[in-house]
């Protein structure tokens, strides 16, 4: 393996609140880091460095989001060198390691860009528009009463694996960030597919797709041009076949239902 320690130059988007007129890229040169670090640990090192040198960096530490740091929660974000979650296929920012970078690299770190994800500070944007899409239809009806038998409802293997593939979506918003139109079709279609494919979610399948799509539209996401950047940058490799499935469900629920 190459050098254990490398120096990188970070081009970080700094913005002190939603309407900061001085927002822009700030360069932090020659930061020395260990290649075994994850990308977020590298940012921790940067922030420690900033805090220890307050006089030199009056802007203070960089705000960024994270939680599990093991690729399952969807809290981390960042556009790294123009790509959400960085250059590695199927990897969240928290799982991206610095060994994929070289000594002397210039690394651009920017927030997710979309009107429906308003800026909060630095690299943090407000992704609650996703929560509103989920609230609009991301639930199923269940019977009250005793605990149901886990095997009472037969689910064919291929259906369950398709639903599970869609359920892998962690709601991070990278699909929106990758899309030149800031469209939320991959996320919404993953949720519509995950619930609509399974028998437990069939009851409200037709109304769910309409509600979730119309909430998605209301939040101000762009329209899908089928570019496929979402699929390429999704850390969970959700397929755009889900988008076709959602289109199909939306069109058929519009034309075949009586309401």
């Amino acid at each position: 393996m190459a050098h254990e320690n490398i120096k990188v130059n970070l081009y970080v988007w700094r913005q002190n609140g939603p309407n900061d007129p001085n927002a822009g890229i700030k360069v932090y040169s020659d930061l020395e880091i260990n290649t075994h670090m994850s990308f977020l640990e590298m940012l921790d090192v940067l922030n420690t460095h900033i805090i220890e040198n307050k006089d030199k960096y009056p802007e203070g530490p960089v705000a960024f989001e994270h939680d599990c740091r093991e690729g399952i929660c969807g809290a981390c974000s960042l556009v790294i060198n123009g790509r959400p979650h960085g250059p590695m296929q199927g990897t969240t920012t928290c799982q991206l390691h610095m060994r994929h970078f070289n000594n002397g690299d210039n690394i651009y770190i920017e927030p997710f860009k979309a009107k429906a994800f308003p800026m909060i500070k630095d690299l943090v944007v407000d992704r609650s528009s996703f929560d509103k899409i989920i609230q609009a239809g991301g639930y199923i009806s269940v019977n009250t009463g005793g605990t149901p038998d886990g095997n009472a409802v037969p689910v064919p293997q291929d259906v369950s694996s398709e639903a599970m593939d869609a359920a892998a979506c962690i709601g991070c918003g990278a699909c929106v960030a990758a899309c030149p139109n800031a469209s939320a079709m991959l996320f919404t279609s993953a949720k519509v597919s995950h619930l609509g494919l399974l028998p437990q979610g069939k009851t409200e399948a037709a109304i769910r797709v309409k509600r979730m799509v119309s909430q998605m539209d209301n939040e101000g996401f762009g329209l899908c041009s089928n570019v496929g950047a979402c699929e390429a940058d999704c850390p969970k490799e959700i397929s755009i076949n889900n988008i076709a499935r959602m289109n199909r469900a939306y069109i058929s629920s519009t034309f075949t239902n009586d309401h």
């Binding site: 081009y11 556009v79 060198n81 123009g82 790509r83 979309a114 009107k115 030149p180 101000g220 996401f221």
Partner: peptide, 10 residues
């Protein structure tokens, strides 16, 4: 809806 491009070039 997008509101601009990224400066990173990937």
């Amino acid at each position: 809806a997008k509101g601009g491009k990224y400066q990173g070039k990937g």
